[in-house]
Amino acid sequence: MSGQLTLPEKPKSKFSLYKRIVIFIIIALIYIWTFTSLEIRWDTIFSESTLDNMDRIIPKFFQPAVEETGNILEMMFETLFIAYTGSLAAAIIAVPLAFLCASNMVSNKFLNNIGMWILGGVRAFPEIVLAIIFVAAVGPNPFAGVLAIAIGSTGMLGKLYSEVIESIDMNIIEALEASGANKLQILFYGIFPQVLPEFLSYAIYRFEIDVRASSVLGIVGAGGIGTLITFAYMNRNWEEVGMILLVIIITVTIIDQISGFIRKRLV
């Protein structure tokens, strides 16, 4: 029996073939266009001076300035503090915005959209741009970094939170409503137990991202290890840059591991 069984032929459509060709041509054109308009000077890239620089600089990365460790670690901790404070603030600010956006909590479409616009608008700014704005506003110190991280993270956390809220089991809300509980009691007994573990998980994930983001904020003067990178780079002190990179890589890896472990236990 099974020997005679043949799969019915897959319906072919000429349209899909044309579509594929057209898409391929469009992508190829965009590719060619970007490369030609960038004016990459291949001759300088593959010149002797590049090889010289490589030969001179790259090895220095691998002879990190160990004697600077204390100073670098201090700045690394400042970076972590900036990330932590910023993420924590964002994790809290994002909650009311997320409820505003969640269509099962606020049934007014207009208010939902306002919430979405706020979060979308905030997400449109890269942290570094926010940092420049806040350095201008509050001066070149770690507080500017904290603000940049807090505002930048709110956009993403608010969006993710609101998706979590929209996915909760509304029957539980109905059950509490039926027992005569008021809105605040429903929030604390029906909604928070369903969403808080996920909120926390996303907040920790965002902290991971913020540690990376706050490492470069110092470049524009917003505190943290980025300040050291700028100084070392301007002085062509490649050994120190190497050491800074090493510290960042190790710290970020450790944080990733810890956060992954906690997040796995949470949900």
Partner: peptide, 29 residues
């Protein structure tokens, strides 16, 4: 509503909360 108890097909307990917390939520009203 506090005088009217309701039981549902899908039980509608808060799955992540303890049994005690679920039961005592009957007192919320």
């Amino acid at each position: 509503r506090t005088k009217i108890g309701m039981i549902f097909q899908s039980y509608n307990l808060v799955k992540r909360s303890t049994v005690l917390k679920n039961v005592i939520s009957g007192r919320l009203g």
